[in-house]
Design a binder for these strands. Sequence first.
DNA 1: ACATCAATTCGATAGTTGTCGAAACGTCGA
DNA 2: TCGACGTTTCGACAACTATCGAATTGATGT
Lengths: 115, 115
Amino acid sequence: MASVHSEARSVAAAKPAKLSRTQRTAILKALSDPKRFELLEAIARSHCPLGCTAAHEALSISPATLSHHIKELQTSGLIHVRREGKFAFLTIRPGILEAMSTYLQSLSPTACPTR
Amino acid sequence: MASVHSEARSVAAAKPAKLSRTQRTAILKALSDPKRFELLEAIARSHCPLGCTAAHEALSISPATLSHHIKELQTSGLIHVRREGKFAFLTIRPGILEAMSTYLQSLSPTACPTR
DNA sequence: ACATCAATTCGATAGTTGTCGAAACGTCGA
DNA sequence: TCGACGTTTCGACAACTATCGAATTGATGT
């Protein structure tokens, strides 16, 4: 398994997604802002398709700032923005967080003798 | 490399470490700088006790900047700095990266119906 | 056509921070 | 005691960015 293209994209996550160095830094920078992280958490907590208005209510920031953060999360590849009429719906793109998580895990000290 | 007071701590990682919101944001901010992340990677790649001089050679930054980044990683709780005479040795603190990794994992969309 | 609403873009501002050189500090060997 | 060396602290500066209000775009309903 673990093929590059998964056709069953619906239910379970599990997408390999090897991240380049550039992607990693982009993702970490996107995650580093508290409000942006809260936004991601809000998207995660809602069962994925989160309306932009709901997001604006969850965080307490102006629409302009929210739009900025959304674009930031989007260009880093963390979320997907689906536009429907005048609304926008935010979903977490599967695989990215897992890949980041896995990479971080790989840095942890497996055996660090002299502490 | 003989450690003066080696009292044989726990060898393997596996420390629970629940992170507070404040800790999470601190960690993510610490990870968000490319140089700092490279530094962490360097510490990880070396088998943990990384000398400050080696770090200075790995990244190409001034001693002042390196010191700044070290402090940043330290206060975020990601690394431990052991001072020995005029040297400093950097080790990754066990549990933290794992905890962060786990938390990120928990945000990923387990079941996201409408893509 | 018009008004309304959601979202984005623009311009500006304030705060943050990565970076360095120079000076200072602490340690070690001579 | 002195000088060399590793590391830190101190300003200072430049670049970045989070934030907002106002103006704009685009879509919807009347």
